[in-house]
């Protein structure tokens, strides 16, 4: 889902950068206010894990592969969508500048899609579903799936505005492929959430959430 420079005119990229910078500033305020020293190791490991697992493409059928994006996972584990914005921004900057994965002028739109939209959709859908169903696995899976599919559909609209994708075909293709890739996203979100909650229950306490 990393949009390259070639897919978007520079002025449009600058507009998305401006929007992304607002959310990056808010995520840094989250770091200052909410990220105490006990959370730093977990944030570091989440960032490293999301960075590397984004390089691990798994086949999903229809001649396509996909990987975890991680916005929902970061937001759920750390209890804020701004945590996802913070982590995904750093991951996307390193990927774009050093490894050429995603563009420079399009880094803002990539942060907006995967960090902001992915993080907010993941966080609020998880807590909404958890309140309704009281089932952690179902809520985390659905949140991961939605945090993959909705940013993908947002990317289509942005690339339609950019004149790169036709809207209808883009929505059908991106929607179809990311509905499949979202199964990976949902599955890894559940497994990683369970794993992290088992090793750091002081930070991620699933049982409290279910019984609250």
């Amino acid at each position: 889902m990393h949009i390259p420079d070639a897919f978007m005119p520079i002025p449009q990229g600058i507009i998305y950068w401006a929007i992304a910078l607002v959310f990056i500033a808010l995520s840094l305020r989250w770091v200052r206010q909410e990220m105490d020293e006990t959370k730093v190791p977990l944030v570091a490991i989440l960032a490293a894990g999301i960075f590397v697992i984004q390089a691990f493409n798994l086949p999903v059928a229809l001649g396509t592969s996909g990987h975890l994006v991680g916005g929902a996972l970061a937001a759920i584990v750390l209890g804020s969508p701004f945590a996802a914005v913070f982590i995904l921004s750093l991951v996307l900057i390193v990927q774009g500048v050093i490894f050429g994965d995603g563009g420079i002028t399009t880094m803002g739109v990539n942060i907006l899609n995967m960090g902001v939209i992915g993080g907010f959709v993941g966080y609020y859908s998880y807590h909404g579903l958890l309140a309704a169903t009281r089932r952690v696995n179902l809520s985390a899976f659905a949140a991961g799936w939605l945090a993959c599919v909705i940013p993908a559909l947002a990317a289509v609209v942005e690339l339609w505005i950019a004149g790169t994708f036709p809207l209808n075909l883009g929505l059908v293709a991106m929607g179809l492929y990311h509905a499949l890739i979202g199964i990976i996203e949902g599955g890894i979100t559940v497994v990683a959430l369970r794993l992290i909650a088992s090793v750091r229950p002081d930070i991620v306490n699933i049982s409290n959430e279910v019984t609250a």
């Binding site: 897919f7 960075f51 590397v52 493409n57 396509t64 592969s65 883009g170 991106m174 990311h178």
Partner: peptide
């Protein structure tokens, strides 16, 4: 993470991702 990196290098699918597949369809 390094174990995942080794897996990514040797086992990752060479197929295009969702955005690239969509671009190829377009």
């Amino acid at each position: 993470a390094i174990l995942i990196a080794i897996g990514a290098v040797y086992l990752a699918s060479p197929a295009p991702d969702g955005l690239e597949s969509t671009a190829l369809v377009v």
